[in-house]
């Protein structure tokens, strides 16, 4: 994926790897995908006081093909679930997902016939941000955690190959999901 596979692992290119690493985490472009009330918090995190949209180099793009990060903020209904899946599939590798708020984590307070109990039933989630809605600072914490995961993923990919990196990612996703606690 991309051009970095063409570089052989040698002394000259290890510093290039860390540059790619740094570039990927310093310029996460997120997909504007607000579903419900958490979207309001996401927007207020993008507003001048917290400025998540610009300070970390993150930029919001409307087209999934140009986005790296999808912040699913809000209740995912069963009607919306295939749309979420389609958008996730349309994003180009490498891609990450942050699930923001209780509804996206485990369905929130809505244990009903129309709500998907957690967006991880539909797409794989890397970071879960709890809250109803989470404060912008909590979203920030989630983003910084994600940046850490990006760094670790890239480092493992360079040192041990992309299979190991994928395995690490699966593991960290499972860990995060387990940390949510027992589900309904």
């Amino acid at each position: 994926m991309g051009i970095e596979d063409r570089f052989e692992k040698s002394i000259l290119t290890t510093s290039v790897d860390s540059v790619f690493n740094w570039a990927r985490r310093s310029s996460l472009w997120w997909l504007q995908f607000g579903l419900a009330c958490c979207a309001i918090e996401m927007i207020s995190a993008a507003m001048p006081r917290y400025d998540i949209a610009e300070r970390f180099g993150m930029l919001y793009r409307a087209s999934p093909r140009q986005a790296d990060l999808m912040i699913v903020s809000g209740t995912v209904t069963k009607k919306m679930a295939p749309v979420v899946r389609q958008l996730y599939d349309q994003m180009s590798e490498p891609k990450w997902v942050i699930s923001m708020g209780s509804c996206a984590n485990i369905g929130g307070p809505f244990d009903t016939y129309a709500v998907v109990q957690g967006v991880d039933q539909v797409i794989p989630v890397d970071v879960y941000v709890p809250g109803c809605p989470p404060l912008p600072e909590a979203l920030y914490h989630g983003v910084l955690e994600l940046q850490n995961k990006v760094i670790r993923y890239d480092t493992i990919a360079k040192k041990e190959g992309s299979d190991q990196a994928e395995a690490f990612r699966e593991e960290s996703r499972a860990e995060a999901q387990a940390a949510l606690g027992p589900r309904r």
């Binding site: 051009i3 790619f20 740094w22 570039a23 310093s26 180009s92």
Partner: peptide, 24 residues
């Protein structure tokens, strides 16, 4: 505005460019 990547965010365009190069 961007102020994390590099001093005062000066390396932001470079990070953007490299990231775009490494996308699928």
């Amino acid at each position: 505005g961007p102020n994390r990547t590099g001093p005062v965010g000066l390396l932001q365009p470079i990070a953007d460019g490299i990231k775009l190069l490494t996308k699928e």
